[in-house]
Structures are given as C-alpha cells and as structure tokens.
Write a protein that binds this DNA or RNA. Structure first.
Lengths: 191, 191
DNA sequence: GATTTATAAGTGAATGTTCATTCTTAGGCT
DNA sequence: AGCCTAAGAATGAACATTCACTTATAAATC
C-alpha cells in the first residue's frame, strides 16, 4: 500500500506543525518526518520552506472561500447575509482550529503581511462577498455609512478575537453565545 | 558623558528591533549593536533572550496600564468610561506604533500565550478597569448582559484590527473615524 | 593624596547547536 | 540499460550563549 500522495502529506504536515509551533518553530526535518518522507523529498515538490508555507496558505484560502460561498443567500436581505457570513466563519474555524492557528501565524509574518495588504486594499478580488454586502447595505440604508475598513474591523475583529480565545482553550464558545455575539456585532454596523 | 544606563538601552533596542523584525528575526548580536554594548553584556542584565523579551513586555504593560488609568473618569457614566478607554487605547497605540507591533509579536508567540491566558481569565489583576466597567454597566442595565469575554472581544477586537491596519500603513485613521468606530462599538454592547 | 589591590562590569572572539538546503547514492519503473 | 523519484547524510550559514580577558571603579594602605 504505497502512500503515494506525498505532496498532500507534506502540505498537511506543514499545516499542522506550523499551526502548533509557528513558522520558526518547525524545522523542515520535522515536517519531513511527520509527512513520512525524506528531508530532501520536500524539495522535489517545493522550491523552499517559504514556498511551501505560501502554498499551504493558498490551499486554506480556497477552502474557506468555498465554505463561505456555499449556501450564501445572495439577493436576500443584508441582515441575513451578515448572519450567514459570521456564522459560517465561526463554524469553519471552530471545526478547523488548526486552519485558524495556521492563518494566525501566517498573517503575523512578513509573507502574510503583503497578502493581507492586497486583501484589504481590494486590489485582488474585485468580487469580495463582504465588500458587496457592505456596499448594498449602505445603499439600502440598513447599515451605517462608514468606510469599508471600519465595517471590516467591526465585523471580523470580534470574530477573530473570540475564535482566538476559543481555539487557545481560554473560553468555551457555544452556539447561543455565538449568536448573541453576532447580534451585538450587527447592532454595531446597523443603521 | 558616559551613557551608563545600559540596561535601558538594551531594553529599548530589543523593543524596536523585535517590533520591526519579530522575535526570531532579531539576533542578540543585533540588539547588542543597536544598544551600543558588547554581545556578552546583555547577559549581565538578562539571563536569556527569552527573559529579555518578557521584561520588555512587562515594561510596556505598565506604561499602557498607566496611560489608561490616567484621567480615567471613575464614577462617571458607563458610556463616558467606555469612550475614554477606547480613545486612550487608540491614542496610545497610534502615538506608540512600535509598542503595538511589539505586543503583536509577543502575543502571537508561546510566551505571550500564557500571559494572555492569565489576563483573560482574570486570575492576576483583580481590579481590571474594563471588568469593573462591564460589571457596573450590566448592573445598571445600560449594557447587554453578556459574558465578560464577549464584551471584551466586541470592544477590543475592532480596536486591535483598526490599529493593526493603521500601524501597517494600510489605512489612515483620523480622529473622526476613530470616534465613529467607537460609537459603533458602543452600539454593539449597549442595551 | 598617592599608590596599590580587590571587585565588579563589560567585551567580543570562540563554541556548539540548529537548521535550510544540496548532493550523492539507491531503488523502482519502462 | 536508462531515467526518474526519493532518501538521508553532508554542508555551510546563522545564531544564542559562554568565557577568558580587559577596563573601570572602589577600597585599603601608607
């Protein structure tokens, strides 16, 4: 039984180890061991450690993007969209704590910084779900007329902080609390 | 004119370099050079790199704690307290971006994690200004009856994210925007 | 006060370790 | 055989920490 999807194994090992120990805390040798491959093998698939980490990030971004777009209530009212978006994010990260912790590491590092920059500036994805929701909400006068980045911070700031504490085991988030927290966030942005 | 406060210089150099390059990005040799001391000198004052970084964090925590307590409107109404707290935090971090970036690094690392744990759990400081404010606000029925950690996330989540983007040069926060964002946060937690 | 002696503070080259990356060799496949 | 994937030992760079030594400061003696 040849476990031949080595590339997958390497990505998965890198994801888990970086999530747990951070970028500088995980030597390539450790990744190789966890992936069940030789140290040099990694370099058959990735040019460098940096590239490997960046690739892991891409995989995660795609998965999350998919999770959010799934069942997204296009054309429904803004409040419903907002709740769906937040609930999906909470659900995703609580069921995939490893992904969250990896992204935390990633965005705190030099790589992530520039990625984040582009994300925020909106240069890359012209059709960001959140951006569109905010734009429509303002037009419909159901949410406050604030700059996009303030809406972004009001919405995702609390989510990130709560998930952070949950994932680190400092608090225990249950569904009721998540709903109440989203309701409060909605109060922040609604007209 | 002997520049004899070497300990101070080392702490300051460590603060600035770690803020800019991260913990693993700043060798002790670099800290020594910036502080204008020999490489070994650091070990006369600090047992290890870890201890040095932890000490820098303590210094910062004290400064911030002082800044917040200064002019804090005890006994005034909750809304005023809330605004003062948020405004002070914004002001502090915008005038001390280096401090913010250091703390970002610190709390993303293994050290900070445990410190943060205690902070959140409230085991250490029994008289946290924020905790008291929330408690009183709930009693007075001016803010929602939510767990402390949700109020914490609703309040500081947006602040942290906005300052993060400001400090990284991705956005330009002006006073009016800060006020509007605090007003929105207040809407989130108020009854 | 001058001179020697003791103590502490400071230094930076040397050490040993850790790690990303490379390279040589071995094994499987056509 | 020839070719390609994989392995893991070998390499060399970077770095935290140490330590033998120097310099400055204080104490003691005359």
């Amino acid at each position: 039984m040849e476990d031949s999807n080595k590339r997958e194994n390497i990505l998965q090992a890198a994801l888990e180890l970086v999530a747990e120990h951070g970028f500088h805390g995980t030597p390539m040798s450790m990744i190789a061991e966890k992936a069940g491959v030789g140290a040099g093998t990694i370099y058959c698939y990735f040019k460098s450690k940096d590239e490997l980490i960046i690739e892991v990030n891409h995989v995660l971004e795609n998965k999350i993007s998919l999770a959010i777009k799934e069942e997204y209530p296009f054309n429904k009212d803004i409040r419903k969209s907002f709740f769906h978006l937040c609930k999906t994010l909470f659900a995703y990260f609580i069921t995939h704590p490893i992904h969250f912790r990896f992204l935390e590491q990633y965005f705190g590092s030099p790589y992530g910084m520039s990625a984040h920059r582009e994300r925020i500036m909106g240069n890359t994805r012209k059709t960001n779900i959140f951006d569109i929701m905010v734009e429509q909400g303002i037009k419909q006068k159901v949410i406050k007329d604030l700059p996009l980045f303030i809406h972004f911070a009001l919405t995702f700031g609390p989510v990130v902080m709560l998930v952070q504490n949950h994932v680190r085991g400092l608090i225990e988030l249950d569904d009721a609390q998540i709903i109440r927290s989203i309701e409060a966030s909605w109060d922040a942005i609604k007209m």
